[in-house]
């Protein structure tokens, strides 16, 4: 039984939260909204997984780095953790991109004012 995958995912989540904390992007900007987005994202993606499992598309591997513990047939306990990571990664990228775009347009506006 391996915990490498689970530990990597938790580490990934920690890193996302550190970015979030450092730049006040998601949970550190509006914790309630961030919690709702994370929960909605998790439920949506989990429903997708379950549909895929039901249709016989997704099959769990026998990788040695996974714990091998299942929440449901073909659904390892790592899956929801991965999905949470995916949602956090998505939102950190999006909010980060917004921050960058805002900064760029602000700088352009300043430059224009200087040129006038």
């Amino acid at each position: 039984m391996g915990v490498l995958y689970l530990v990597s995912l938790l580490l990934g989540i920690t890193c996302m939260l550190l970015l979030d904390h450092r730049f006040r992007l998601f949970f550190w900007r509006d914790a309630k909204a961030a919690a709702i987005v994370t929960a909605v994202g998790l439920v949506f993606l989990l429903a997708w997984d379950l549909a895929g499992i039901r249709l016989g598309i997704f099959l769990r591997g026998e990788g040695t780095i996974a714990t091998g513990l299942l929440l449901a047939p073909e659904l390892p306990i790592e899956e929801p953790v991965f999905l949470i990571f995916l949602v956090l990664c998505t939102m950190v990228l999006y909010t980060g991109a917004r921050r960058l775009l805002d900064r760029i347009s602000l700088r352009l506006a300043e430059r224009e004012r200087e040129n006038v």
Partner: peptide, 25 residues
């Protein structure tokens, strides 16, 4: 997976954080 996530979730986030941008944080 990432496509669906990135199309829907940031929109939800923007909708949830509209108006009360400063007060709630």
């Amino acid at each position: 997976y990432p496509l669906a996530g990135v199309v829907a979730l940031p929109g939800l986030w923007m909708w949830l954080t509209r108006k009360r941008k400063d007060s709630s944080s």
